[in-house]
Protein backbone atom coordinates (compact mmCIF):
# COMPACT_ATOMS: atom_id res chain seq x y z
CA UNK A 1 0.00 0.00 0.00
CA UNK A 2 1.30 3.44 -0.93
CA UNK A 3 1.89 6.15 1.71
CA UNK A 4 -0.85 8.28 0.16
CA UNK A 5 -3.40 5.47 0.37
CA UNK A 6 -2.55 4.94 4.04
CA UNK A 7 -2.90 8.68 4.67
CA UNK A 8 -6.39 8.68 3.13
CA UNK A 9 -7.37 5.51 4.98
CA UNK A 10 -6.13 7.00 8.27
CA UNK A 11 -7.99 10.27 7.76
CA UNK A 12 -11.26 8.40 7.21
CA UNK A 13 -10.76 6.08 10.18
CA UNK A 14 -9.71 8.94 12.51
CA UNK A 15 -12.84 10.91 11.56
CA UNK A 16 -14.97 7.86 12.30
CA UNK A 17 -13.24 6.78 15.52
CA UNK A 18 -13.11 10.27 17.03
CA UNK A 19 -16.59 11.35 15.89
CA UNK A 20 -15.29 14.37 13.99
CA UNK A 21 -18.74 14.67 12.42
CA UNK A 22 -18.34 18.02 10.76
CA UNK A 23 -15.09 17.07 9.01
CA UNK A 24 -14.28 15.34 5.74
CA UNK A 25 -10.90 13.78 4.86
CA UNK A 26 -10.21 16.82 2.66
CA UNK A 27 -10.45 19.09 5.73
CA UNK A 28 -7.50 17.33 7.40
CA UNK A 29 -4.07 18.61 6.41
CA UNK A 30 -1.85 15.52 6.58
CA UNK A 31 1.15 17.54 7.76
CA UNK A 32 -0.67 19.72 10.33
CA UNK A 33 -0.38 19.02 14.09
CA UNK A 34 -3.13 16.80 15.50
CA UNK A 35 -3.00 18.02 19.10
CA UNK A 36 -3.08 21.40 20.78
CA UNK A 37 -4.91 24.49 19.60
CA UNK A 38 -3.48 24.47 16.08
CA UNK A 39 -4.65 21.87 13.62
CA UNK A 40 -7.27 19.37 14.79
CA UNK A 41 -7.14 20.20 18.50
CA UNK A 42 -7.38 16.59 19.66
CA UNK A 43 -6.94 15.69 23.34
CA UNK A 44 -5.48 12.87 25.45
CA UNK A 45 -8.52 10.58 25.12
CA UNK A 46 -8.36 11.01 21.32
CA UNK A 47 -4.71 9.91 21.46
CA UNK A 48 -5.72 6.75 23.35
CA UNK A 49 -8.48 6.10 20.82
CA UNK A 50 -5.92 6.39 17.96
CA UNK A 51 -3.76 3.81 19.77
CA UNK A 52 -6.76 1.42 19.72
CA UNK A 53 -7.34 2.19 16.03
CA UNK A 54 -3.73 1.36 15.10
CA UNK A 55 -3.93 -1.94 16.96
CA UNK A 56 -7.28 -2.86 15.44
CA UNK A 57 -6.48 -1.94 11.81
CA UNK A 58 -2.74 -2.51 11.53
CA UNK A 59 -1.80 -4.79 14.46
CA UNK A 60 0.47 -2.13 15.98
CA UNK A 61 0.83 -2.24 19.76
CA UNK A 62 2.00 0.88 21.58
CA UNK A 63 2.90 0.25 25.21
CA UNK A 64 2.13 3.69 26.55
CA UNK A 65 0.66 7.05 25.64
CA UNK A 66 4.12 8.63 25.78
CA UNK A 67 5.26 6.49 22.86
CA UNK A 68 2.19 7.67 20.95
CA UNK A 69 3.03 11.33 21.49
CA UNK A 70 6.16 11.06 19.34
CA UNK A 71 4.29 9.43 16.47
CA UNK A 72 1.00 11.32 16.63
CA UNK A 73 2.41 14.68 15.54
CA UNK A 74 0.59 14.54 12.18
CA UNK A 75 -1.38 12.12 9.99
CA UNK A 76 1.67 11.93 7.73
CA UNK A 77 3.87 10.78 10.61
CA UNK A 78 1.35 8.17 11.73
CA UNK A 79 1.17 6.88 8.13
CA UNK A 80 4.96 6.58 7.99
CA UNK A 81 4.96 4.68 11.29
CA UNK A 82 2.19 2.37 10.01
CA UNK A 83 4.18 1.63 6.82
CA UNK A 84 7.21 0.62 8.83
CA UNK A 85 5.55 -1.28 11.67
CA UNK A 86 2.28 -2.79 10.49
CA UNK A 87 1.72 -6.49 11.16
CA UNK A 88 -1.58 -6.77 9.27
Amino acid sequence: MEMNDIIEELKASIIEALNLEEMTPADIDASAPLFGDDGLGLDSIDALEIIVLLEKNYGIRLANAGEGKKIFTSVENIARYVCENRTK
Binding site: L18, I45, D46, L48, E49, V52, E55, K56
Partner: peptide, 11 residues
Protein backbone atom coordinates in the same frame (compact mmCIF):
# COMPACT_ATOMS: atom_id res chain seq x y z
CA UNK B 1 -10.72 -12.25 18.97
CA UNK B 2 -11.76 -8.61 18.80
CA UNK B 3 -10.78 -7.27 22.21
CA UNK B 4 -10.39 -3.53 21.62
CA UNK B 5 -11.68 -1.69 24.70
CA UNK B 6 -12.55 1.88 23.75
CA UNK B 7 -11.11 4.48 26.17
CA UNK B 8 -13.58 7.20 25.16
CA UNK B 9 -16.60 4.91 25.59
CA UNK B 10 -15.26 3.75 28.97
CA UNK B 11 -15.01 7.33 30.26
Amino acid sequence: DAFFPSPSLFV
